[in-house]
Amino acid sequence: MTPKPATPDHKIKNRKALLLSLAEQRGLAGLLHGDSPLSFGDRFEIRRQLDEAARQKNLETIIQLAHRTSSDDVGSEPDPDWLSHFLALAENIRHPAMQQFWASILAQEIVRPGHCSIQALHRLKQMTQKDALLLQRASALGCHFGDDNLRLLFGFQHKTLLQGLRQHKLSLGRHRLPYAGLLQLFELGLLHQAELESGELPAGLPLRLVFNGRQQALYPLKKGVRLLYYRFTTIGNELAALMAETAPEDYLHELSELLAPVGQLQQR
């Protein structure tokens, strides 16, 4: 049987039309239409007005989304400087999902002023929707133990009499956080790049682990066990706290199986 020719992708097939549409939306299609009665200066003014109208629409959409998610509970007015920075950074956010995220930040700032720093807003402005999804996934896998720093737990190491120091790790890629995603989070300054290890866990004493409000306890069965993890940066902690997502059961199950030889992970 003669194979059918591959059907061209719609976006590739119509790329000229797509480019024309994008140019018209941004007021940049003057030369694409041939001779124009408008001068470059006139066309610049039209583009400037389109850009300003788009920024106004972006801000009004974010305000509307924040208003929809707000309740009638008591709130406080955000710091004026913070609000000025927020509006200046948010005005160019066009993607609906990112607009929703910025709206949630504003709504939370009214409930709890100071929960998101200006530095975190600037870092968020650099992020794409894909970056935000990566951080959201890392946040879902993250946990707290010992202090308020969020950590991404991925294994442990322990000493043996015969084999010396041994490490055991799970694959974060199996939980939709591939190494390329980790590299991107490193690049954005949301995760510290170094693989870190905890102090030695005392045998028999439970270690409290908190996965987005879900409490677990690790009961080490032997001495010499240290947990392996990546630590979120200060800004990574701030932004991750805005992306509450339940820790996936498959990750907790695999982590429990990984730790089984040296400790029992139990829900509290």
Rank of each mutant, 00 (worst) to 15 (best):
T233N: 10
H85Y: 09
Q119F: 02
S76H: 12
G30T: 08
R123D: 10
Q25P: 02
Q25S: 10
E60I: 00
F232A: 12
G181L: 01
F40L: 15
Q167P: 02
A138D: 08
D148H: 05
V74F: 14
M1I: 00
V262G: 12
H85D: 13
M127D: 05
K13G: 07
I62L: 06
N237T: 05
S117R: 01
A217M: 06
A6G: 03
G164K: 05
K169V: 07
Q215W: 02
N58E: 07
T128D: 13
K125Y: 11
Q100P: 00
A180R: 05
E60Y: 00
K16L: 14
L209I: 11
L121G: 05
Q119E: 12
L18T: 08
Y229F: 15
L134P: 01
G199C: 04
H158C: 15
L265H: 10
A140T: 07
E197R: 03
L152G: 08
L106E: 11
S256C: 08
L183K: 13
S76A: 12
L196A: 06
H85W: 10
C116H: 03
R15K: 11
Q157E: 15
E52W: 06
T2K: 07
Q264C: 06
L196V: 00
Q216H: 13
L221Q: 14
A97P: 00
S36I: 02
L207A: 13
L242A: 13
S198Y: 02
K159C: 11
Q184C: 05
L201E: 07
K223F: 01
Q215G: 06
G213R: 04
K159T: 14
L218R: 07
S76P: 00
N58D: 12
S171W: 00
P206G: 08
K222G: 03
L133F: 04
F44K: 14
L258N: 11
Q266P: 02
A241V: 01
Q25K: 13
H144A: 12
L221C: 07
K13I: 00
G173C: 02
L183S: 10
P261M: 08
Q216G: 06
V111Y: 14
H158G: 09
F232S: 05
Y179C: 01
L20T: 01
N58L: 03
L121M: 05
L183G: 08
R94H: 13
H192L: 03
E254Y: 02
